[in-house]
Design a protein around this nucleic acid. Structure first.
Length: 428
RNA sequence: GGAGGGGUGGCCGAGCGGUCGAAGGCGCACGCCUGGAGAGCGUGUAUACCCUACAAAGGUAUCGAGGGUUCGAAUCCCUCCCCCUCCGCCA
């Protein structure tokens, strides 16, 4: 969602943002609509104002026992014209700001420092952390390891639910729970995030707020006519402040939640069909921050560091990548991906995505705050990041911790969460 | 699922077709008063849009949301959302 005033003031900057997203200029067209809308609005308001005056005079005349017929006739005379002007203004407003309006369907412009590029090949690696493990054997992929342990079952999962589901058992089920608990504990006790247990079913308005709707309905699971399954806890956590006017003193708000995430993975046919990398349902610990506009930049770095800390403590090697304009998601203005090293695949894979959305989501949600000094209200900034994707973290633990004998070493920090277990062995 | 009762400004609460953005109270802010505090008194206290210098003044809208009736709606009608109570069911 865009600030129409900003487009009025700086149409070139707006079009430049679109261009960086690979879109054609639209400022001129938008400003035409905007101008027409304001004219229609002014006309309608003018007529309404006159009729309000007449209505008051009619009331007064009645009070004096006079016949208001003449006044009523004058009021009626303007009625159609007003109706037309209103309808016209409403159509134009809808074309601009309605659910399918231009301002609603255009993506957030990239921040200035986002590298330009068509696709992920233009992403910029910022840093590598941790040293890659070496193996005296050819490291296996996680699904092979899990199957050999007898604790990861794709066949039965597909019998239950089809492709892109998994059944974890025993120590692996426990490992998933341990990972999520460890992450939540870290974020709540050391980084000041408030743990939230939000609904996993939301309605349209929440998904419009964060930007999944109207454009990406195909990526979501729809429960029925009124509810959708969340694709990420970003949706309920961010929408916690939808429609609110916050006191500046409560900012920043930091929320974390462990939820299941449900994604239809439309358009991912053929990608990552094996294993747990790309599932219809997965567990994720999410981080969301609601900040003052002046602090979102620093918060973005802070949030990324919080997510990185999880990997550091799990002793998993990773790298951080700045997404280029072509790889940026709809609502994000800047995104850092954290990619964990997967020895079985011999490559880094995304395990977290930390984005700042500026005021883009806040506008859609109407989430504002009242500045301490100064009047009126301002839109907050919203940020979200995985801290981390639990399923993929489990994959990384398996692939990095695998031993020649098929067992898997449990990372030290997880052992308290695993009843002291140091090693995952077959059928454990 | 069945039967009722409700949704008014930061909060409480009046209004039930006319001059209501909305009485009154509380809270909050500022001022006066005070050695200081309290009490007391006074003033102010929403959001969005239009207009405009993104000033002042003005206009329009908003009493859960959206439609309708009417010259005129917080007040009447319809649809939807939400909350509460009782019964049923249920983790």
């Amino acid at each position: 969602m865009f600030d129409i005033k900003w487009i009025r003031d700086t149409p070139d900057a707006f079009d430049r943002g679109l261009a960086r997203r690979g879109l054609t200029p639209l400022a001129e067209k938008i400003l035409e609509l905007d101008k027409a809308r304001r004219e229609a609005l002014a006309e309608a308001q003018d007529l309404q104002s006159r009729r309000n005056t007449l209505a008051r005079e009619i009331g007064a005349a009645r009070g004096r026992g006079e016949d208001p017929a003449a006044l009523m006739a004058r009021s009626m005379a303007d009625k159609d014209a007003q109706g037309d002007a209103e309808a016209h203004a409403a159509r134009l407003t809808d074309a601009l700001e309605g659910p399918q309006g231009v301002l609603m369907t255009l993506p957030n412009p990239p921040a200035d420092d986002v590298p330009d590029g068509r696709d992920e090949s233009a992403n910029v690696e910022l840093r590598r952390v941790g040293s890659l493990p070496s193996f005296s054997f050819t490291p296996l992929e996680h699904d092979t390891i899990g199957a050999a342990l007898g604790l990861m079952d794709f066949e039965r999962a597909s019998r239950l639910s089809g492709a892109r589901f998994v059944v974890l058992k025993g120590a692996l089920a426990r490992l998933e729970r341990a990972l999520a608990a460890f992450m939540l504990d870290l974020h709540t006790t050391e980084f000041g995030y408030v743990e939230v247990n939000p609904p996993a079913l939301v309605r349209d308005s929440a998904l419009f707020g964060t930007g999944q709707l109207p454009k990406f309905a195909a990526d979501l699971f729809r429960a029925n006519n009124t509810h959708w399954l969340i694709p990420t806890a970003e949706v309920p956590l961010t929408n916690l402040v939808a429609g609110e006017i916050l006191e500046e003193s409560v900012l920043p708000l930091r929320y974390t939640a462990m939820t299941w995430c449900f994604r239809s993975e439309a358009g991912a046919a053929g990608k990552d069909t094996r294993g747990m990398i790309r599932q219809h349902q997965f567990t994720k610990v999410e981080l969301v921050s609601i900040t003052h506009p002046d602090h979102s930049e620093a918060e973005h770095l802070r949030m990324t560091a919080c997510a990185e800390e999880v990997l550091k403590r799990l002793e998993l090697p990773y790298r951080v990548v700045a997404l280029c304009t072509g790889d940026l998601s709809f609502a994000a203005s800047r995104t850092f991906d954290i990619e964990v090293w997967l020895p079985g695949q011999g490559r880094y894979r995304e395990i977290s995505s930390c984005s700042t959305c500026g005021d883009f989501q806040a506008r859609r949600m109407k989430a504002r705050f009242r500045p301490k000094n100064g009047k009126g209200t301002r839109f907050v900034h919203t940020l979200n990041g995985s801290g981390l994707a639990v399923g993929r973290t489990l994959v990384a633990v398996l692939e990095n911790g695998q031993q020649a004998d098929g067992t898997v070493v449990v990372p030290r920090v997880l052992r308290p969460y695993m009843n002291g277990l140091e090693m995952i062995t077959p059928h454990a």
